[in-house]
């Protein structure tokens, strides 16, 4: 895996942060590996970490009593899983490793404490994360359109 610092410096969510803020993110990040089928987290758990995928594939899943786990989306290179910055700081889905994966894990709790103290940092971070959230919402909307269905 590339150097953690280099990856975060060039990641769209962090690259425009001020040097001091970027250093804070880097200081609270570490490399992590997951085996295929391993759960990163489960629905209802505390959301204290976020992950930036570096290799492999992570499935976002919802568990339903009748159908079991349903994959809603899969995420890959440089995509963020589980942004722990907004209340209620609780996981709203399962994240499962589809194949052996590498990621950068960031201490979400430390980030949100710093965001509360330093509103400039908080605004920049939320602005960048909101872009990701909007992009994912838009993709989900297209998925819901069921565009390949036969229209008669």
């Amino acid at each position: 895996m590339k150097m953690l610092k280099t990856i975060l410096e060039n990641h769209p969510s962090f690259q425009e942060l001020e040097r001091e803020h970027l250093k804070f993110v880097i200081d609270n990040a570490e490399n992590i590996e997951f085996k295929a089928e391993e759960l990163l987290f489960k629905e209802g758990e505390k959301a204290d970490k976020l992950y930036i995928i570096q290799s492999g594939k992570i499935a976002i899943e919802l568990f339903t009593p009748s159908r079991g786990s349903i994959t809603i989306q899969t995420l890959g290179l440089n995509e963020i899983v589980g942004w722990s910055l907004t209340p209620p700081y609780q996981r709203s889905f399962d994240a499962r490793c589809v194949e052996d994966s590498q990621a950068i894990s960031i201490d979400g709790k430390a980030l949100r404490i710093r965001c509360e103290e330093d509103s400039k940092f908080g605004y920049e971070l939320l602005k960048n994360f909101t872009y990701t959230v909007v992009q994912r919402l838009q993709r989900t909307r297209i998925q819901l359109l069921d565009i390949y269905k036969i229209r008669t």
């Binding site: 499935a59 989306q73 993709r139």
Partner: peptide, 23 residues
Amino acid sequence: TTVDNTDSEWQGHVGIVSALISK
């Protein structure tokens, strides 16, 4: 390959095809 929805043991991508472009 990516699919919009799956119930199976699918190991590929799930999501819209344009999302794969960025990767």
